[in-house]
Structures are given as C-alpha cells and as structure tokens.
Amino acid sequence: MTRVRQSEPLGGKRHGVARALSKLGVCSRSQAEAAVRAGRVGVDGRPVHDPEHPVDAARQKISLDGVTVVATQRVYLALNKPRGIVVSAADERGRDTVYDLLRDAGLPWCGPVGRLDRASEGLLLLSNDSVWAAGITEPSTHLDKTYHVQVVGRPDADALAAMLAGVRDGADLLKARRVALLRAGEKNAWLEVLLDEGRNRHIRRLLAALGFEVLRLVRVAIGPLQLGELAKGQWRHLSAAEVAALRTR
C-alpha cells in the first residue's frame, strides 16, 4: 500500500490501538475494535485484546492478521446514493448497500461521512480520512447540508415560517436554517431546505409534524460541494480543491 502524509500526524502521540487503526485508514473504529477483541491485532509482535491499548503508530509496529499495517492512500469520494440503498457495510436483511456500488472499484476501505436513510437519495461522501470526516459531521464543526424535498400539498408562508421557528417532536426541537419554495403544482410542491444540524430523519419528522408527507428527499449539497450532474448510483473522486474546501479541522 502507498504511504501518504496523515491528515493528523500520529507520530509522538499515543492513541488506543483501535483508534490508531482507524486513523491509518485501514478500517472503521468499530471494525478495529472488533478485530482487537477477536485477537487479530498485534503491537510489536505481541497480541493485544484491549481496543484502548495505547500505541504510537509512528514508532511501534501494528499488525492485523499477521500483516504489518501501513498508512493507506487517502480516499475522498462523492456518491449519488439512489433511493432504496442502505448506508451500511452490511445489512442484516440482505438489502443492497452503498458498498455494492463500489464493488470491484479497487478502492481501499472507506466509510460513509454522515448518513442518508434508505428512502433518501443524493450526495453522500465516503472517506478513510477519519479526521476530515469528523470535521464534516461533528456538531461543533460540521458543514451545512442542502436538500430538495417533494411534499404532498402546497406549504404556505405560515408553514415555511414554522419550519424556521422549529417544532417539537418528543425531546427534539426540529427546525431548518433556511427554507424556500422551489415550485408548486396542484397536488405537491418542491422545497429547498438547508440544515445546520442533522438529527435522525430530521426533515421527515419536521414536515410530518406540520402535516406534510415527504415523497422524495434529495441531498444536493454538503457545504460548498454540489451534487451536480453525477448520475444516480455513480461515484467520483473529489479533487484536492474540493477536499480542502470541505476541511474544517
């Protein structure tokens, strides 16, 4: 595998071995923890079973299944997720996942940066750069996300104002940072909704609380990155400029 500069240097810093594996771009944190507990990981030739076992990845040798781990090439992907595809490495019900769309691409492991539920579609990022990904998804640093949403009915000015003010759904206050009516027909309408936070099924719950059924929900932008003309089910590598524009940490 190609050795590359880390987005957050590991040299001189000690991390739990599972976190170190994730930062090296080998697998996700949860996958690394499972591998450690299964006895598949060694440090300087000795097996470890504690995911929090401290290690300096720049000075100590970490192995997985007997093979020395080196930093993998950093991968940054944009994918147009179709409706009905699960954002997961595996699905217990045997449904298609985003990884089926990447099969045979010859890519190193990469994980989804945030989520889209099965019924939603549009722009999804994947990467093996955990620091870059965390900057996009963590509440204190994450980027705004823009959605186009088709609903049954024609939301009026009061409904749009309520989306901005927020509505309670259980313990959550759900609201949009910005909302605009894109177009409306006799029976349904399209809205553009911008979120600066991302609770589970945020837009669907917000609109349901206001009496609107969602027919389609498409994420069209993450920060400055637009979905553009990327076809459904297709993916592409991000340019260095796009990666930098999305970097918040």
Rank of each mutant, 00 (worst) to 15 (best):
A208P: 00
V152D: 13
N188P: 00
L126C: 01
T68I: 13
S30E: 15
D100P: 00
R204L: 15
L215Q: 15
V113S: 08
H53G: 00
V69C: 10
V86F: 13
V131L: 11
S7V: 04
E197Q: 15
L116N: 03
V69G: 07
A180Q: 13
R178N: 10
A90G: 06
D96E: 15
A231T: 01
G106H: 10
A157S: 14
R247F: 10
S28A: 08
G122F: 04
L246N: 08
V70S: 13
L126N: 00
G25R: 04
V243W: 07
Y147R: 05
A159Q: 07
N200G: 07
V218K: 13
G12K: 06
L164H: 08
P112H: 15
R154F: 11
R14S: 10
A78P: 02
A18P: 00
G198W: 05
R37W: 03
V69D: 07
L195A: 10
W109C: 06
L21D: 07
D65M: 11
V17A: 02
K81I: 01
V55N: 05
R199Q: 13
N188V: 01
P155G: 14
P51C: 09
G228N: 10
R37T: 07
V67R: 14
A240K: 11
R19C: 02
R5L: 09
Q226L: 14
K145D: 03
L227D: 06
N128R: 11
G66M: 05
G16V: 01
E213H: 08
V86D: 14
V48P: 02
P108T: 01
E213R: 11
L126M: 15
L217V: 04
R46L: 07
A89S: 12
A32M: 02
L124G: 01
N188I: 00
L194I: 14
K145H: 02
G84Y: 13
F212H: 04
R37H: 01
L191K: 07
A133M: 12
M1Y: 12
G211F: 03
P82V: 06
E121P: 00
D56L: 03
A38L: 11
W235C: 02
G122C: 09
K232D: 09
D100H: 11
S127G: 09
R168Y: 12
H237Y: 08
R177T: 05
D156P: 05
H237K: 10
R5D: 14
I85C: 07
G45L: 10
V167H: 08
D117P: 03
G228F: 06
R74Y: 05
R5V: 11
M1H: 09
R118Q: 12
A184P: 00
R118K: 13
G84A: 12
